[in-house]
Simulated assay, not measured.
Amino acid sequence: MVAVKSPLTEAAQKTVGDALQNSLIDLIDLALVAKQAHWNLTGRNFKVVHEHLDEVVDLARQYQDEVAERAIAIGVNPDGRARTVADRTVLPQLEAGYLADDKVVAAITDTLGQIIERFRERVEVTDEPDKITQDLFIEIVAALEKQHWMFQVQIAG
């Protein structure tokens, strides 16, 4: 077995590794929540919301891979196993069964808002120990905030 030597100090590796692992869990569960909504969506805005949910799934899957690969690059093993995600996720879960489009839009807007808040905290936490990971988190926040905006404007106000 070959271990990857970290370019970071032990303390920095721990801080950044924890931020990356928690990000991985958020992104994996975001993809699962969005896909669950995608499959069970109903309502007059079905097509638009259905397709928009796939954008969120694609974004989450893209960045979960980048986050996991960054973890490996700093010598931390990412854990994206189903049990780990189920045990550690903090995302609100959707109800089972058919889901009305307006409720899905509200739920996804809220979920994205929560994830963005945590990613913004991770941007701060990684400022000192690892600017490379911080840069990745900044990129993810920008993508998530765009999706959040696009869902948020669909809420009738």
Rank of each mutant, 00 (worst) to 15 (best):
Asp65Lys: 12
Ile155His: 10
Thr109Leu: 01
Met1Pro: 13
Tyr63Gln: 09
Gly157Ala: 15
Glu51Phe: 06
Thr111Val: 05
Pro92Met: 05
Gly80Ser: 02
His50Val: 00
Val90Trp: 10
Asn40Lys: 02
Glu145Met: 09
Leu41Cys: 02
Lys14Pro: 03
Val33Thr: 10
Asp130Leu: 06
Lys14Tyr: 06
Leu41Gly: 01
Val33Ile: 14
Val105Ser: 00
Pro78Phe: 06
Thr84Leu: 02
Thr109Phe: 00
Ala11Tyr: 11
His52Gly: 07
Leu112Trp: 01
Thr84Pro: 04
Ala34Trp: 02
Thr9Gly: 08
Gly80Val: 09
Ala142Glu: 12
Val105Phe: 00
Gly43Lys: 02
Thr111Arg: 02
Glu66Tyr: 13
Ile132Trp: 02
Gly80Trp: 07
Leu30Val: 11
Asp58His: 07
Ile25Val: 15
Leu94His: 05
Asp79Ile: 06
Asp127Tyr: 15
Ala12Trp: 04
Leu59His: 07
Asp58Ser: 14
Val33Asp: 08
Val16Thr: 12
Glu145Trp: 07
Ile115Phe: 00
Val125Lys: 15
Leu41Asn: 01
Ala96Arg: 06
Lys35Pro: 05
Asp110Met: 05
Leu94Ser: 06
Ala12Pro: 03
Leu94Lys: 04
Asp102Ile: 13
Glu51Pro: 05
Asn40Tyr: 03
Ile116Asp: 04
Asp101Tyr: 06
Gln154Ala: 05
Phe151Leu: 06
Arg70Tyr: 04
Trp39Asp: 00
Lys5Ser: 14
Glu66Trp: 12
Ile74Lys: 04
Gly157Cys: 14
Gly113Ser: 05
Trp149Cys: 05
Leu27His: 01
Glu139Gln: 15
Thr84Ile: 06
Leu24Arg: 01
Thr9Ala: 05
Thr133His: 10
Asp102Asn: 14
Arg81Asn: 10
Ile108Ala: 02
Ile140Asn: 11
Gln36Lys: 04
Glu55Arg: 04
Glu95Arg: 15
Ile108Val: 08
Glu145His: 10
Gly17Trp: 00
Val57Glu: 08
Leu27Gly: 03
Lys5Asn: 15
Thr42Lys: 11
Glu145Phe: 08
Ala60Met: 05
Asp18Arg: 12
Ser23Met: 03
Val4Asn: 02
Met150Asp: 10
Arg118Asp: 04
Val141Tyr: 13
Val123Phe: 15
Glu117Ser: 13
Ala86Thr: 09
Val141Leu: 14
Lys47Glu: 14
Pro129Asn: 01
Asp58Cys: 03
Thr9His: 02
Ala3Asp: 15
Phe137Asn: 12
Thr133Gly: 14
Pro78Arg: 05
Thr15Phe: 09
Asp26Arg: 01
Leu30Asn: 09
Val76Phe: 01
Val57Met: 03
Val125Leu: 12
Gly17Asn: 00
Leu30Arg: 11
Ala156Met: 11
Thr15Trp: 10
Ala82Arg: 14
Pro7Glu: 08
Lys14Phe: 08
Met150Gln: 13
Glu139Val: 15
Val2Gly: 13
Gln13Ile: 01
Ile155Asn: 09
Glu66Phe: 14
Asp110Gln: 12
